[in-house]
Simulated assay, not measured.
Amino acid sequence: MTKFMLISRLINKTNASLSALKSRPNDAYNIPLNSPKGPCSLVRIMPVTSPTHPACGQSGLFAARDLKPGTFILQYIGEIHAPSPDGSLTPDPHANSDYDLSLDREQGIGIDAQRKGNEARFINDYRGIAEKPNAEFKEVWDEEQKERGMGVWVLGEGKSGKGKGVKKGEEILVSYGRGFWGARKSGDLD
C-alpha cells in the first residue's frame, strides 16, 4: 500500500466518524435551548454513606429539587472518541473505563467521562439501590454545537404512568445495561 493510499484511508475513516457525530439522527431528542451551560442547578453530587449501597464510600448524583417525569436533567459530557483511524491494534484507552457510553456503535463512537466530564459521571446504576431506574440516557442533538450527544432524562410517565419523577434529595439512577454488567461478570474489564 502506498503512503498516499494509507493517508487517504485514514482521512476517510476520520471523516466518517466526524460525519456521524455531526449528523442529526432522526430519533435524537433536542437539548432544550434554555439549558444552562456550566454546573447544573437541578442536581447535587453527594457522598454515598449508606453501608448497603453498592457505591458506599463513593459519590452519587441527587436531585436538588423535584423533577417531573420527562424532564431533561443534563447532558453527559466527556471525551468523544472513535477507533483509531489507522486501524492499529494499540490498546484502547477507554476499554476499561466505567464512564464510557456508546454513542454510535456502528462507527465505534463513545463518550468517556473518566478523565473529564460533568456531574452526569456520578450517576449510579439502580441495581442494589432501587427496584427500577428513575432516569435514562437518551441520544440528544445539540442544536447550538450541531453535534450528537447523550443526555439524562427523568423517566417519562409512559403508557402505564410508572414514571413518577424524582423527588428532591432522591438519588438519580439509570440502568447501565446488561452489556456493562456482563463484561464485568465475565472478567473482560478487570
Rank of each mutant, 00 (worst) to 15 (best):
A28G: 11
D27Q: 09
P91M: 06
D100T: 04
I45K: 15
R105T: 12
Y29N: 11
K68N: 12
S50F: 06
A95P: 08
K68H: 11
V43T: 06
F62A: 02
S19L: 14
L21V: 05
L21G: 01
R44S: 15
S19Q: 15
L61S: 01
S23E: 01
T49V: 13
R105A: 12
S35R: 15
L42Q: 03
L101K: 14
S84H: 12
I45G: 14
H53N: 10
P51T: 06
A95I: 06
T49W: 09
S88E: 04
P93M: 01
H53I: 02
K68R: 15
T71I: 07
S84P: 09
S41P: 14
D27T: 09
N30D: 15
L33D: 14
A64K: 03
I31N: 01
D92V: 13
M46A: 13
A82D: 02
L101G: 09
H94E: 05
E79F: 04
Y29W: 09
G57N: 05
S23V: 01
P83H: 10
Q75R: 12
A55C: 13
Y76I: 02
A82H: 08
E79H: 07
I31W: 02
K68G: 06
N34W: 07
C56S: 11
D98M: 10
H53C: 04
K37N: 12
N34K: 10
P93A: 04
D92G: 05
G70E: 07
H94M: 04
D100P: 00
K22M: 13
P83S: 08
D98L: 11
Y76F: 03
L33M: 15
V43I: 05
L42R: 04
A55W: 15
S50H: 14
T52I: 07
Y76D: 00
S102I: 11
E106Y: 08
S102H: 10
P51A: 02
L33A: 14
F72V: 14
L67Q: 08
Q107H: 08
S88I: 02
P93E: 05
R65M: 15
A20H: 02
S50Y: 08
S59Y: 11
G57D: 06
P32Y: 00
D104N: 11
P54V: 03
N34I: 06
R24A: 02
K37H: 12
V43P: 00
S50V: 10
I73Y: 01
P47G: 00
L103M: 08
G70F: 08
P47Q: 01
I80L: 08
M46C: 14
A28N: 10
L67I: 11
G57P: 04
S97Y: 08
A20G: 02
